[in-house]
C-alpha cells in the first residue's frame, strides 16, 4: 500500500495546522485517498512551536502518528532544529529558505528544497498567505496529490473573499516547485 508521512512544523501564527489540513483535505475529499491529521500546539496563542502530522495513503490508516516523515515542511528555525533529524534518509525537506539554514542535522541522503515563501507572500500582498505558498510548493515538488485536488482544498478551506489571493499564493508556490524540480532533474 502506498503511504506517505508528512510532518509540518513552524510557529503559531504561520498557519501550520491549516497547511496540514489542506493536504489532508485534498487527499481525502478530492483525490479519493485516505488521510489523517494530528496537530500539536504550544501553550501560547502565537509564536510558540506548532506542528502537524499528516498521513496520506491509498488504504485506511491504522496508525496516524508520524515518527520519521517522508516529507518535512518547515517554516521556522526551531522547527527545523527539532524535526530535521527525524526525516527519513530518503526523505525530502521543503523549507522557507530565507528563515532557515540547512546544517548537518539533516540526515545524509535527504533532499532539501527551499523557497522564499515569506517574501513571495509579501509580494503577493499578504504575509498571511505564506502557508499557502508552502502548500503550493509541496504540491509542485512532491506530485503526491493532483494540482486540481490541492486547489480545490485551498479554495474550500480559506474564508470567503480571500480565495483569489490564496489561489495566487498556491500557484506561485506550485510553479516555483515545478521549476525547481525541473532544474534539479536537468542539472542532477
Amino acid at each position: 500500500m502506498a503511504k506517505s508521512e508528512i510532518r509540518v512544523g513552524g510557529l503559531g501564527g504561520q498557519g501550520v495546522i491549516l497547511l496540514g489540513h489542506i493536504i489532508g483535505k485534498a487527499a481525502s475529499i478530492y483525490d479519493s485517498k485516505h488521510a489523517t491529521l494530528i496537530q500539536a500546539f504550544g501553550p501560547e496563542a502565537r509564536g510558540s512551536a506548532c506542528s502537524a502530522q499528516v498521513t496520506v495513503a491509498d488504504e485506511a490508516i491504522g496508525y496516524p502518528y508520524v515518527k520519521n516523515p517522508d516529507f518535512l515542511v518547515i517554516m521556522s528555525p526551531d522547527a527545523y532544529t527539532q524535526f530535521a533529524p527525524q526525516l527519513k534518509p530518503t526523505g525530502t525537506l521543503l523549507y522557507e529558505n530565507e528563515l532557515i539554514t540547512i546544517d548537518d542535522r539533516l540526515p545524509a541522503g535527504a533532499r532539501a528544497l527551499g523557497i522564499p515563501a515569506t517574501r513571495f507572500a509579501e509580494e503577493l500582498g499578504r504575509r498571511l498567505v505564506l502557508n499557502i505558498v508552502m502548500v503550493g510548493f509541496f504540491a509542485g515538488v512532491t506530485g503526491l496529490l493532483s494540482k486540481d485536488a490541492m486547489e480545490k482544498a485551498v479554495k474550500g478551506s480559506v474564508p470567503k473573499g480571500t480565495e483569489e489571493l490564496n489561489l495566487r499564493a498556491f500557484r506561485k508556490g506550485y510553479e516555483y516547485g515545478v521549476e525547481l524540480i525541473g532544474a534539479a532533474t536537468v542539472t542532477g
Binding site: 498557519g15 500546539f41 502557508n131 474564508p159
Partner: peptide
C-alpha cells in the same frame, strides 16, 4: 475598508489550540 475580510484568515492561521 476591506481588511476585515482578512481577519478571518488571520484567525484561521493562528495555530491556537481549540482547547486552550
Amino acid at each position: 475598508d476591506v481588511s476585515h475580510i482578512w481577519e478571518r484568515m488571520e484567525a484561521l492561521v493562528a495555530d491556537y489550540s481549540p482547547t486552550a
